[in-house]
């Protein structure tokens, strides 16, 4: 009894001091989340009547939503692994003592600092139907390609995404690489391990938390690419560029909150599953090296 009372006395202060944060998180995260769940279960925001899971089933029959979900999933499935692998490769290269190392580092980081509007402008100059790249193609005798209004559009956006995000991921990996204890590498050298073996058995193991982190960041950034797509192509782009965020943006403007909320909840559930899987993988690979 005395022990419980003393523990409560200690806990009392903790609870009091945590209250503002709890209120903040409740007000700005949990409450809106509940509101979204509410909207996803009514038929419309202005004259609501409860329809339970009707919106979800209708959503799965909506070809625009399915197209958007497919595009988003495909883009993330390609962009995230590419982003992780390429940035890891770049980090490994720049870890070596090559000339102009720090210049290259700065060079790869600069795309992050360029404002989105400027990026969009440059990309339009290059990839517009009458832009620089098509002029070059005409010059060499090939035909014009409608970059933004054909199947090539996803390639353009992928290049944009990688160009913007590789630098940041690369820096994260370089920090991770820097934390690998030198002793293990030296011991591996002494034991005659090849570069590839060192990479797989030591570096990847130590980098696994970083890889998880970079993967999650890239996943989030792959959704943010909507910003550039929206500025390049507007509310209703060619169908290969029509992302989930387009669907949500447009339904918001049309006051179709029920579609928007249902789509958001589905996306949230999918994200939880994906990140859960990533955590499990990381746990398996990284358990040896974590304390």
């Amino acid at each position: 009894m005395k022990k419980k009372h003393r523990r409560f006395k200690e806990r009392k202060w903790e609870i009091v001091l945590m209250t503002p944060s709890i209120i903040g998180v409740g007000l700005f995260f949990i409450l809106p989340f509940c509101v979204v769940i509410y909207y996803s279960m009514v038929d419309n925001p202005l004259n609501p009547s409860f329809v339970f899971l009707d919106n979800y089933s209708r959503l799965f029959q909506n070809s625009a939503f399915l197209q958007a979900a497919k595009n988003t999933a495909v883009f993330s499935a390609i962009a995230v692994p590419l982003s992780v692998i390429l940035s890891l490769g770049m980090a490994l290269i720049l870890e070596q003592n090559i000339p102009l190392r720090s210049t290259f580092r700065t060079f790869f980081l600069t795309p992050l600092m360029v404002p989105t509007a400027s990026i969009v402008l440059i990309w339009q100059v290059f990839f517009h139907y009458n832009g620089a790249i098509n002029e070059f193609l005409l010059h060499i005798g090939a035909g014009k390609i409608d970059w933004f209004k054909s199947a090539y559009s996803q390639i353009v956006i992928l290049i944009l995404f990688l160009w913007k995000n590789l630098g940041y991921n690369m820096v994260l990996f370089m920090a991770g690489l820097g934390q690998i204890p030198r002793d293990y590498m030296e011991v591996a050298d002494l034991d005659g391990a090849t570069g590839w073996q060192k990479f797989i058995y030591i570096k990847i193991r130590y980098l696994s938390p970083t890889i998880l982190f970079v993967a999650i960041m890239s996943l989030i950034n792959s959704f943010k690419v909507f910003r550039e797509v929206y500025l390049l192509t507007g509310d209703y782009p060619y169908d290969t560029l029509y992302l989930l965020q387009h669907f949500m943006n447009n339904t918001f403007r049309a006051l179709d909150y029920q579609k928007l909320s249902a789509a958001a909840i589905i996306m949230c559930l999918v994200m939880v599953v994906i990140i859960g899987i990533l955590f499990l993988i990381e746990n398996h690979f990284g358990k040896d090296v974590e304390g």
Partner: peptide, 23 residues
């Protein structure tokens, strides 16, 4: 710059997205 067919296909593509989204 483009033929009527090409433009019609793009319009078809984009307006279909709009219609399906709002149906």
């Amino acid at each position: 710059q483009k033929s009527a067919k090409e433009v019609a296909d793009i319009i078809q593509n984009r307006v279909s997205t709009y219609v399906n989204e709002n149906r």
